[in-house]
Simulated scan of single mutants.
Amino acid sequence: MMSQSHFAPPGPLGFGGAPLGNMFDEVSEEAAEAALVAAWDTGVRHFDTAPHYGSGLSEHRFGNVLRRYPREEFVLSTKVGRIMHPDPRAPENPPFVKGLPFRGEYDYTYDGTMRSVEDSYQRLGLAQIDIVYIHDLAADHHGSAWEELFEVAMNGAAKAFIRLRDEGVIKGWGMGVNLTEPCERALEMSDPDVFLLAGRYSLLNQPALDRLFPMCAERGVHVVVGGPYNSGLLAGGRNFEYREAPAEMVRKRDRLAEVCARHGVDLRSAALRFCAAHPVVAAIIPGAKHADKVRENARLMAAQIPHGLWEELKREELIPADVPTPSDEPLSDRPAGVAQPNRH
């Protein structure tokens, strides 16, 4: 019988590392460092990165800054699923630009997972990784082949993680994906602790609400929400799920913004606070390329939001009638220490 997970990352606001891998646009070393320092200075203690982000660039940048802080005071997560092979041609790795000279190759096997974790230690220059996610193992990246690869991962990466967790090398593991199905299947087949789910629980849409979140609640598994702005649409942009937003989503965004304006609330604040209100959500990790955006996210997360906003959004059927919503008070910081797993 599978045991309940009790590992919870610190929250509520974390830092997502994809932008610092030069996602879409190049970020200077100075700007990347300033963004990470600003995150620390605003109280962020949860940092997420991946080998895929800039072909190792994001991990390098995280390590260069995080090494200056006490290691026991923050949680660090990275991912497996791609081995980075040196390649002097520095092949393109969209949506990242001007990454490091490495070529990613999918590998969800046991040995590939152990190598990937070891490679991440070297890129980060740190001797402790707290959470490791199986990255992008879903239909959006692999089409119909994802199910076969998922079997490989459950017999490879998952078993490697369970061993590393049981030995105390890592504190938790899970899936880092953009779709709910792999998370649901991982709960059915193995013993994960936490999921990083991007774009599937937001003010705009909540595919995770009806099935995945109840499964997580039953097992004591936590969710870290990535993409709380839905690729920028909730922050005033035009993209949704990494491409131009469909007209119906733009219209819904505009209606959400109108209701927020009537209550004197920034739509971005509502988006962040909404995600944090669900009991299974341990943290939200919006990405940011510059220090001013990091500080702005902290301000938006701390904003006070009147309960009447949520009531009106439900009346207008812009969010589900039974969805958890925040209290009237500003969100207080959760403890920054690393929660320890208790699997008894």
Rank of each mutant, 00 (worst) to 15 (best):
M2R: 15
S5E: 11
H6L: 13
H6V: 07
F7L: 15
A8L: 14
P10M: 04
G11F: 00
G17N: 10
G21R: 09
N22Y: 13
V27I: 15
A34M: 04
A38M: 03
A39M: 04
G43T: 01
G43E: 00
R45F: 06
R45G: 05
F47N: 04
D48G: 03
G63Q: 10
G63A: 13
E72A: 15
E72C: 09
V75M: 12
L76H: 03
S77H: 06
K79V: 06
G81Y: 02
R82F: 12
D87H: 09
D87Y: 10
N93Q: 13
P94Y: 08
F96K: 08
G104M: 07
Y108N: 04
Y110E: 06
G112V: 06
G112W: 05
T113V: 05
M114Y: 05
R115K: 15
V117A: 10
D119C: 06
Q122S: 14
G125W: 03
A127H: 13
D130A: 11
V132N: 03
Y133V: 08
L137N: 02
L137E: 05
G143I: 12
A145V: 06
W146Q: 05
E148M: 02
E151A: 14
E151N: 05
V152K: 09
V152H: 10
A153R: 02
M154T: 12
F161A: 10
R165C: 09
D166M: 10
E181G: 01
E181H: 03
E184C: 12
F195E: 04
R200K: 13
Y201F: 11
L204F: 09
L209N: 00
D210Y: 01
R211G: 00
L212Q: 02
M215C: 04
E218Q: 15
H222R: 15
V223M: 11
Y229F: 15
S231T: 14
G232C: 05
A235T: 08
A235Y: 09
G236M: 04
R238C: 09
Y242I: 06
P246A: 14
A247N: 12
M249I: 04
R253K: 12
A257K: 09
A257L: 01
A257G: 00
C260K: 00
L267T: 08
R268N: 09
A270L: 05
R273G: 08
F274S: 06
C275L: 02
H278W: 00
P279E: 00
P279A: 07
V281F: 03
A282Q: 05
A283V: 02
K293N: 07
R295S: 10
N297D: 11
A298C: 01
I305A: 11
G308Y: 01
L309R: 04
W310C: 10
E312Q: 13
R315N: 03
R315P: 00
I319H: 03
P326F: 11
L331F: 03
L331V: 11
N342Y: 13
